[in-house]
C-alpha cells in the first residue's frame, strides 16, 4: 500500500512538472498565501508531504479546495518550486477519480453571484472544468 502511494506521489510530481526537490522548506509560500489561515495543510507542508509520498493525506485535505489558485506562493518562491501547481495536480487527481462533477459553462450565468470576484470564476473553471 505504501509503495503504491509513493508511486502515486511520484506520478503526481511528474505530471505537475514541478521540481519539488528544489524546495528548502523556507515557508515563504505559506507566508504569502492569502488563504493560508483556513488551510489544514499549508503550502510548504503540502510540498513536503507530497515529496514524502503522502498523497492520500493530501487528497483528503481541505487545502485542495481552499487554494484560490492566485499563485502568490509560486510568484514568491525563491527556488522556483511552484506549490500552486502541485496543489492543482493533486486536486485534478482527486477530481478525475470522483468523475462527472465538472462545471457546465452554459449553466454558469444562473449560478454566478454578482459579487463573486472574477478570479474565483476563473479559478473555479480551472478546478472543475478539466
Amino acid at each position: 500500500m505504501q509503495i503504491r502511494e509513493m508511486e502515486e506521489a511520484a506520478e503526481v510530481l511528474r505530471i505537475s512538472t514541478v521540481k519539488a526537490e528544489n524546495c528548502m522548506q523556507c515557508g515563504k509560500c505559506s507566508a504569502a498565501c492569502p488563504a493560508g489561515a483556513r488551510m489544514d495543510i499549508l503550502p510548504h507542508r503540502f510540498v513536503w508531504e507530497l515529496m514524502n509520498g503522502r498523497v492520500s493525506l493530501l487528497a483528503k485535505s481541505g487545502t485542495l479546495w481552499q487554494c484560490l489558485s492566485c499563485f502568490a506562493c509560486s510568484a514568491r518562491c525563491p527556488r522556483g518550486v511552484d506549490p500552486a501547481r502541485l496543489i492543482e495536480a493533486v486536486r485534478l487527481t482527486v477530481i478525475r477519480r470522483q468523475g462527472a462533477n465538472s462545471i457546465n459553462v452554459d449553466e454558469l450565468p444562473q449560478v454566478i453571484d454578482e459579487n463573486m470576484p472574477q478570479q474565483a470564476i476563473v479559478s473555479a473553471l480551472r478546478k472543475y472544468n478539466k
Partner: peptide
C-alpha cells in the same frame, strides 16, 4: 510570516 516548525502562519 510562516512558522515552519509549528506549521502555522
Amino acid at each position: 510570516a510562516s512558522d515552519v516548525a509549528a506549521g502555522t502562519k
